[in-house]
Design a protein around this nucleic acid. Structure first.
Lengths: 315, 315
DNA sequence: TAAAAATACTCCATAGGTATTTTAT
DNA sequence: ATAAAATACCTATGGAGTATTTTTA
């Protein structure tokens, strides 16, 4: 009789392409795993792997079986998730993925709050770019994403939380009329400093000023907004800074900041999860928590008016 | 760690509403089954059943878990089915459901043919009315249905095989012009004998002559066409006889038979299976086999012309 | 109080571990 | 020749059976 153990081991081998590593991943010995695979192949009456000198390759049948097994294991996970969510809302392990241009600004206030309100929640954080987050969400290695919308994927459901305006950040010694609002045109007047390839923020900035990669953009591409802001402060160019990052990133760096003219450019921040996840109520609850939080943040240290350098001088 | 054994036992209890009978169905002792259920409830952290003096009742959570478990078990079955179909087309157990107004006419020629062509196929037949067949197909107790289309169900896929014309069968002593074709109007000239409630053939006949239940229809309702034809032969009324049944049913009964004027009324005969079943190739193969077969049948003992009593005299 | 599920206890099948051999490039 | 999977063999966990007690309407 087919057992979940067989399917779990099979799935691990299919993923790792290697019996030994799969065994390690499943925390069993390689022979134990080999046995289960042998039994599974026997029961299905199919050869699932070609055994090569280095690792293995899935047979065509193996590939189809892999799909079906992935679905079954995913449904098992969902069943456990449902039970967890029913037993105690917002409790148990939750693997959250966050994009790098949000994590440093959203997590510091969020994590202590969660700890206080949902002590039973065992949160793991993964910070990487959208594409990786989405892949890992689908694979089931992550449960929930906090990122910029939209996320276009049939298997994924999203919830918009708040809008995060882009501000123009420019070198402090650059003289720009304080009372004039920024425009996309203005971005072309100097070198534009952006995050490296793969960051959604980079793509959004490029889309906004309708530029191609090849135009007068910094060719290096930093991997953190913090670095970018330092570069701006040192007169190396301008950048587009999300409002949510302003507080933290301009605390120790003198840069000019300017709002855009209406319609202000912004990115939409939201949550994403597997459409079939039974923890949707958890995610919604977490979403409204973040929503409230960002509301408070914004109303507190609001950036109003066109020129906002005043904010910086206090640092 | 959740195991399939737990889910299988849980599913059985949910179905039977009774630990003892579920255990019997799973071919294990009642304590063995109780243990697995206890473990499952423990691992999920949910109470799945209310234990009553006589049997059990699902809790609301249990009901949700039941749905998820049913889906998982169904996917496991599909995985096995896929493997079987890949290993050897049209082999292994196949649970076929057939409506009563087809079984006696289609199965006699079909079964020996299947036996010859696909000796590995282990066919089980269930004969009952459409509604029951569909329910059992969805539950997974049947794999394939042979019935009258359409079958409207989101989870079910169908394949039309052939059209089966309706003929008017009337008492042999009734004088009707041999060269005149039947019309729906003619049906109202005498008592109409039909199968009992629940048979699709009854509904199709009623739809054809646009009659209500309450009109001049035989109130008993026989449970087999064979009985109906005997009643017709004894002058008790007329009936609508599917062409496929003519050969067998009029072999030993003298009845008048008459084709309808164009457009001839007919029923569409086809196969139906769970949309997600991986044995679709098997079903298609079986379908074309039946298609060919019925073609041969029809061309062999074709009923042509308006009056076909000649066919009967030979019996 | 009677039917049904839970518990107690025993046994054995089998999953898993270690050591070793076979296989494939 | 070497990395990797299969086999051999032993051990121990846990699933299953029988007998019995507890629970619930």
């Amino acid at each position: 009789m087919t057992s979940l153990k067989q399917l779990r081991y099979f799935d691990a081998v299919a993923r790792h392409g290697h019996f030994g590593r799969a065994a390690e991943h499943c925390a069993v010995s390689q022979p134990a795993l080999s046995m289960q695979i042998r039994d599974l192949e026997q029961e299905l009456g199919l050869k699932l792997f070609e055994r090569l000198a280095r690792g293995i390759r899935l047979t065509p049948e193996g590939r189809e079986v892999e799909k079906r097994v992935a679905r079954i294991l995913s449904d098992i996970r969902d069943l456990d998730d449902y039970a967890k969510q029913r037993g105690a809302p917002l409790s148990g392990p939750l693997n959250l993925g966050v994009i790098p241009s949000l994590a440093p600004y959203v997590l510091p206030p969020l994590l202590p709050l969660l700890q206080r309100r949902f002590g039973e929640l065992d949160l793991s954080i993964r910070e990487t770019q959208t594409q990786h987050l989405v892949d890992e969400l689908i694979e089931g290695r992550l449960d929930l994403l906090l990122l910029a919308l939209p996320v276009e994927h049939a298997e994924i459901e999203t919830l918009a939380l708040f809008e995060d305006c882009f501000l123009l950040a420019y070198p402090p010694d650059r003289k720009i009329d304080k009372d004039v609002l920024a425009t996309p045109e203005l971005l072309k007047s100097d070198r534009l400093l952006l995050l490296e390839e793969g960051h959604c923020l980079r793509d959004q900035a490029l889309a906004l000023c309708e530029l191609r990669q090849t135009d007068h953009i910094n060719t290096f591409g930093a991997s953190s907004l913090s670095t970018i802001v330092q570069m701006v402060a040192n007169g190396m160019g301008m950048t587009l800074l999300p409002e949510i990052a302003v507080d933290l990133e301009t605390r120790h760096q003198r840069v000019g900041l300017k709002r855009f003219a209406e319609p202000q450019p912004f990115r939409s921040i939201g949550l994403a999860w597997r459409r079939r996840s039974p923890r949707k109520p958890d995610f919604m609850a977490l979403g409204s928590l973040i929503g409230e939080m960002s509301g408070i943040e914004n109303s507190g240290a609001g950036i109003t008016g066109a020129g906002v350098e005043a904010e910086l001088e206090s640092a």
